[in-house]
Simulated assay, not measured.
Amino acid sequence: MNDLNEFQKAFMETLAIIQETCVQTALSKNGNQSIEEKHYDITSDIIVRIMEFFDGHDNSKIGRLNIICEKTEESLKDNPLIELHDIVCNYLKGTE
């Protein structure tokens, strides 16, 4: 993909790192979880890490991202001000 700009490349590379890290973490865990529990754990881990990425709490060079609804022009993180990675845990299974 040579047509991507530097921001786009960094964004996609960060998502790939999140995926790799979450899969390797899940593979390294030994436990007596059901397959359903394992799926919830890995998907919630990935979602939380993506939200951390958007919040700027990761090691990428990108920094904080702002998600804007094109229809309403509202920011996902404002009014009230929230940290996505904290709030999303209230909605996901596997984040206990």
Rank of each mutant, 00 (worst) to 15 (best):
K93I: 01
N5R: 04
F7G: 04
V23D: 05
I42Q: 00
N59L: 09
D78P: 00
T21L: 10
I67L: 15
L27P: 05
V88P: 03
I46V: 15
N90L: 11
A26R: 10
L92G: 06
N90G: 03
N32M: 12
D55R: 10
D3N: 13
G56N: 06
I46P: 07
M12C: 13
L15S: 08
L81Y: 04
S28G: 10
N59I: 11
S44G: 00
F54I: 15
K71L: 07
G56Q: 04
I42C: 00
E36Q: 09
I35T: 09
N59H: 13
Q8T: 12
S28M: 07
E70F: 06
K61M: 09
E73K: 14
E74N: 14
K77R: 13
T72D: 11
N5L: 06
L81F: 03
E83T: 10
A26S: 15
E70A: 08
T21A: 10
C69T: 06
E73F: 10
C22M: 13
N5C: 11
N32A: 14
L27F: 08
T21D: 13
I46M: 15
T21P: 03
I62S: 08
R64Q: 12
V48Y: 00
F11T: 07
G56S: 02
R64W: 04
I62F: 11
K61P: 05
Q19K: 08
D45Q: 01
G63A: 07
N2D: 03
T72V: 07
I62N: 12
E13I: 14
R49A: 04
Y91V: 02
A16D: 15
K71I: 05
D86Q: 12
V48D: 00
Q33L: 12
E6F: 08
I18A: 08
E73P: 01
N59Y: 12
D58L: 04
K38W: 12
D78V: 05
D55Q: 09
I47Q: 11
C69L: 10
Y91Q: 03
H85R: 08
D41L: 01
G94I: 02
L84Q: 15
D3H: 12
D3V: 03
N2E: 02
Q33I: 05
C69A: 11
K61N: 14
Q24G: 06
K77A: 14
N90Q: 08
F54S: 06
R49M: 02
D58K: 02
I62P: 07
F11G: 07
L15E: 12
K71E: 13
